[in-house]
Write a protein that binds this DNA or RNA. Structure first.
Lengths: 337, 337
DNA sequence: CTGAAAGCGCTTACAG
DNA sequence: CTGAAAGCGCTTACAG
């Protein structure tokens, strides 16, 4: 049923050349006459030959497989980033093999299983890179790169947004818009990204001489935002501005605030999200948000991966790119206020 | 810098056994005494040995790599499905290597490049499997499975929702809710899934003796829904119900209808989406939707893949699972109507 | 239960 | 520009 796959031997025989020459025909910049190369391609096509990437990796001791460790794709920013990473890798003739992060990511076995595939590098885009995960990563043979998160503590190459700056930007924006009672909905407890966003928020408020009106813990998910709304709007006094650690939280918060408390946005309260997801532009929210510099980060990580794959010096091991505020109506001070 | 990876030879030497025995220690159900197996594991751990999956595949002529061809992860259903597929594969000790579908998917080269990785199967979850893509797939050495789409024309194994039934369900629901002027926002032109959804809508209306009030073309994206709203609500007469080919279209339509035309949902018009995305439950929309049977589909595709990987007979080559209506407030007939 | 030998499909010095 | 030879790290009959 399943036909036997053609090998380079078959092509060689058919083309009347050696296996070596067939191999060269498929290796860029190698010494083959254009004439034989074309002849080989033609023969190959005839019998449906394609080089075996596995055998090639094995003998040449270099792999064009990159492991991508992803987190929750429900988060639209992660979904978008993952898709773009796949595309960028493809542009570099690299191929992603993807793993979902989970409980077992704290074990050495999890990462060794990845290494079995001889990946050239491991790209981690998952959110929850906790302490124990980090120590599991340490001591791997394979170079790791952190995407969209920086672990200042670990000396892992990483490309990350300047979340502190982004948080500061968000807070300052609300202050400038006239808010004085600013509440904060935090991100997933225990993660570095949540901490950095929070630090940014706080520093922005502090600079304006403001204390946070209230701090509520979130978890980066829609439901967490809805819950946060309950905590915030069930109180006697409402804040006049709310900083959310990501867009998803803001969506949940807005929906619940409107539905259960008839809060008007922005008339009653201004809201700022974080991530710059495509969804933030949706009419129901029209959410002011802090846009993460996805393109810059992708370009940077592409360069890092390229360096690793081509044995070039790695260069700087950490970069942080500035975030940008996208002003929308969720934080537009209403004229009739 | 990069330390030389340990091989089975190194372990064999250290443990005082042959390479064959080391190999057996890592092969389930093979003949090794438990004692030597443990000794081997211990030695392996000492020098950080892990079997090379590539070499293993090469010699054993079987691969546990599965190619997953994805489409647009902006679509939350696709994002969710992709994530779940990755998890299911992992449960089966299989590993996904992912490719983005693109223009070049209509070329044989695109698919042959995938085959270079000796994948055991190709799982296609992308949306736009057009005619020319199909003919490029034909004649591949590797078994392909269509996920979430069925191409009745091609004899490719597929697991799909019964979209026609789902569409019928949606239409009938609106009819029962009292709608008589029902508009339809269609999916991406030229795709089988859009056609099936449309057929379902139409058959539901026809059964009630209704003609569609208006048919507008969409593209499965948020922006398409917003545009459709303009076409529909700028007219003198509004429909009293709208069937959207997917949730994303419904979101865009709802937002634009509310914002630009002050349409009230469900007071002025009932709306039904399609896909059962997590977002449909969001408070801003609370969208009645046709839920795709994701779990059943995943279980089915997992079995198909398992059959292929383990050379078991494939069984039926096409399954269609029933969709379910999730009633929500976007289609709740208002009492004060 | 274990080992020696052959071989998966390829690349890459080496020699011409 | 081309070929013969060695070898990447492993598995699997075969023989014991």
């Amino acid at each position: 049923m399943k036909k036997q796959k053609a090998t380079s031997n078959d092509v060689a025989r058919l083309a009347g050349v050696s296996r070596s020459t067939v191999s060269r025909a498929y290796t860029p910049d190698s010494n083959v006459s254009e004439k034989t190369r074309q002849k080989i391609y033609k023969c190959a096509d005839e019998i449906g030959y394609r080089p075996n990437a596995l055998a090639r990796s094995l003998i040449s001791q270099r792999s064009n497989i990159i492991a991508v460790v992803i987190g929750d794709l429900i988060n639209p920013f992660h979904a978008l980033a993952t898709q773009q990473i796949v595309e960028r890798l493809r542009d570099m003739k690299l191929v992603p093999i993807v793993f979902q992060i989970g409980q077992d990511a704290a074990t050495k076995e999890y990462w060794q299983a990845i290494e079995e595939y001889q990946v050239a590098a491991i790209l981690i885009t998952a959110l929850n890179v906790t302490e124990d995960v980090q120590s599991a990563i340490r001591g791997l043979d394979t170079p790791c790169i952190l995407f969209n998160r920086s672990l200042a503590e670990v000396d892992l190459p990483s490309v990350a947004p300047d979340l502190r700056q982004g948080g500061h930007l968000a807070a300052t924006h609300l202050v400038k818009s006239g808010c004085r009672r600013i509440a904060i909905v935090g991100g997933l407890a225990g993660t570095a990204t949540a901490e950095q966003r929070m630090n940014g928020f706080l520093s922005g408020l502090e600079q304006a001489g403001l204390e946070p009106f209230k701090i509520v813990s979130g978890n980066y998910r829609y439901e967490g935002g809805a819950k946060a709304a309950d905590e915030i709007f069930s109180a006697d006094t409402w804040p006049d501005g709310i900083l959310c650690a990501n867009d998803l939280l803001a969506f949940g918060l807005i929906d619940q605030a409107r539905k259960a408390y008839h809060a008007r946005i922005p008339e009653d309260v201004l809201i700022v999200g974080f991530d710059g997801t495509p969804n933030s532009a949706w009419g129901a929210y029209d959410l002011t948000t802090i846009e993460l510099p996805l393109d810059s980060m992708l370009t940077s990580v592409a360069r890092m991966v390229d360096n690793i794959v081509n044995d070039k010096p790695t260069g700087e091991t950490e970069e942080a790119f500035a975030c940008r505020l996208i002003p929308r109506s969720s934080s537009r001070r209403s004229t009739n206020r």
